[in-house]
Simulated assay, not measured.
Amino acid sequence: MSTSVHRIVVLGAGYSGMMCAARLAYRTRRLGVRITVVNPSERFTERLRMHQVAAGQQLGEFRIPDVLDGTGIEFVQGWATAIDPERRAVEVDGRTELGYDTLVYALGSTTDASKVPGAAEHAFTLNSPQIAGLFADRLAEVAAAGGTVTVCGGGLTGIEAATEIAESHPGLRVTLLSHGEPGAMMGDKARAHLYKAFDRLGVTVRAGVKVAKVMPDSVELSHGELVPSDVCLWTTGVVVPPLAADSGVAVDDRGLILVDETLTSVSHPEIHAIGDAAAVRQKWGTVHGTCQSGIPTGAYTADTIARVLRGRRAKPFRYGYFHQPVSLGRRDAVIQFTHADDTPRRTRLTGRAAVMYKEMVSASPLTTYRLSKRFVVTAQLSKGGRATR
């Protein structure tokens, strides 16, 4: 059914979806467009700071409708449960139907605790503020008893979580379990600073191990060793919602939407995929799902939709990484500057200079979203990405 108003539905209000929606509202303010944002919660989640919540710190709470106030965007709270690409309709909570002319798919990813026995039942994740808060409550109990905590996963999230927990609860015994070497993506000097921080904070690092099972009071490794664990935090592995695949949209073997050089679905050109939901390839390789790359995809897609609605050609998405900023508690950090393909350069920052840099680039993006309602904000400055138009 055709309408005089072009209907744009944005599924997901994380870093990428919020950037896209706010920028779209400004870019299309004279084009006769109606924008709807769908998200399960009305609270904006700062996923980059969930390790702080897990350590017991309080963050500010921001409502998505308040952030989008004044844009004319309609906010619908609920789960997108089905997409009908032929009818161009989205089902919300199994009952409400939203028609669209253009769909922006920004549902992102979550930590996958389903692959290892016991992880889903006995480990916590950082998938939401609520779960991170429950972990913080349990952590306080364990810390009061001088107990043990295991962090499974030696990626950037695991590193930040382990160091934040150790600094916030110095009486805890913190063990970081990792299949690979934590900080392996960094240069030698940045990685050396990382291990000095582990030593200073008392974090025990067990690299080259594989978790076979998570139990209520221990973690079993693949060779049979039991690592004592009063509470376990699971930070390794990601999974995306099956909604796109279930709806007949072309996806890769991980469930990410296959897109062309303009981040448009190869099977359904009215669907754009951004952030963790998209399988984005560049000349140097595949973009991996991070906030650093997600915000530029949102800004780019807003600009692209506006260009097409004005009858202009879309330009290819171009992106390269710039840095790997990693907090090591509140008083230390390490910044590894990188080539476009995320391999390390020689340059790095450590200590207080790195803390200030990390706070600058990883500060809440809400200011960027609010400014985007009135100006064209250079999105890559907020997260270090390099997206050219």
Rank of each mutant, 00 (worst) to 15 (best):
R47P: 04
L48C: 05
L48I: 14
R49K: 15
R49T: 05
R49D: 14
M50R: 06
H51E: 13
H51W: 09
Q52A: 08
Q52V: 01
V53Y: 01
V53A: 05
V53F: 03
A54F: 15
A55Y: 05
G56S: 07
Q57M: 13
Q57F: 06
L59R: 09
G60K: 07
G60H: 10
E61C: 09
F62T: 10
R63P: 01
R63K: 15
R63V: 05
I64D: 00
P65T: 11
P65Q: 09
D66I: 04
D66C: 12
L68T: 05
L68D: 00
G70R: 12
G70S: 13
G72I: 03
I73W: 01
E74H: 05
E74F: 00
Q77Y: 08
T81F: 07
D84V: 07
R87G: 13
R87M: 11
R88F: 04
R88I: 09
R88A: 12
A89L: 12
A89D: 11
E91G: 03
V92P: 00
V92C: 11
D93T: 08
R95V: 10
T96P: 00
T96Y: 05
E97M: 09
E97R: 15
L98P: 04
G99Y: 03
D101G: 10
D101E: 09
D101A: 07
T102G: 00
